[in-house]
């Protein structure tokens, strides 16, 4: 799929699916027998965040480091000091970073840009063309450049994540191919993979990239069935 540097960063626009993808990716690495630590650097989103998956991921042997006040009743964008040490020790294990959305969320990465760049990294632009401000490749590319400026790191790949939540179908995924290719041309970045929910019948040939099967993990333990 993608080569194996020590650090993999998932960044992108608000709600593009970074947290779900990062958690699925960490689980994928773990299944391959690698040691993984997940750094939740999202300091902008109050709900539906990685800390809600901590127990599930811990069960699978994946350590999650979350912002000190994640999931609490206050809004303090502080990252724990352990993150720096983990990044300095890159090489001992695989590090997956889940960044907050947009350039605002990406700002948290800037502080670690130096140590990440010297360790070797890949940074994936998570792209869901069904989201507001991402429906044209031009808009999505603009967002990409804003994030790069804020993070002080450049993207290495696109991670296509075309979905309409619970209503995602085969057509949803196939219809997105044109948009993803347009973004790839505009940005000059390759598509690392297309993330597809398990059970949706799509082949790698049809989306012209490798497939990454994923599960939807963030749903408040099934509390919310679709309305209707």
């Amino acid at each position: 799929m993608i080569h194996s540097p020590y650090i993999t960063v998932f960044a992108g626009l608000f709600g593009s699916g970074k947290t779900n993808l990062a958690a699925n990716y960490a689980m994928h690495l773990k299944r391959r027998g690698e040691e993984v630590v997940l750094l939740d650097m999202d300091v902008v989103n109050p709900l539906f965040r990685m800390s809600e998956l901590s127990a599930l991921l811990a069960e699978k042997g994946i350590a999650v480091i979350t912002p000190s006040y994640a999931g609490t009743n206050i809004d303090i964008p502080a990252l724990p000091c352990t993150m720096e040490g983990i990044l300095q020790d890159a090489g001992k294990r695989r590090i997956v970073i889940d960044l907050g959305g947009d350039d605002i969320g990406a700002t948290a990465l800037w502080r670690y840009a130096g140590v990440i760049a010297s360790a070797g990294y890949e940074m994936l632009y998570v792209y869901n063309c069904y989201r507001p401000f991402a429906q044209t490749a031009q808009e999505a590319h603009l967002g990409m450049m804003e994030i790069e400026r804020a993070a002080r790191l450049t993207f290495t790949h696109i991670a296509a994540n075309p979905n309409l939540g619970e209503e995602t179908t085969r057509e949803t995924v196939l219809f997105a191919k044109r948009q993803t290719e347009a973004l790839s041309r505009l940005s000059g970045l390759e598509v690392a993979f297309t993330a597809v929910m398990e059970g949706i019948p799509v082949s790698a040939e049809e989306v012209a990239s490798s497939l990454f099967p994923i599960q939807i993990l963030l749903n408040r333990a099934g509390a919310l069935r679709p309305a209707g």
Binding site: G15, N45, P46, L47, F48, Y130, L164, G165, E166, E167, R220, L224, P226, A227
Partner: peptide, 10 residues
């Protein structure tokens, strides 16, 4: 409420 505001649906 905060949950409705943050949840994503088509």
């Amino acid at each position: 409420d905060g949950m409705l505001g943050q949840m994503m649906e088509p």
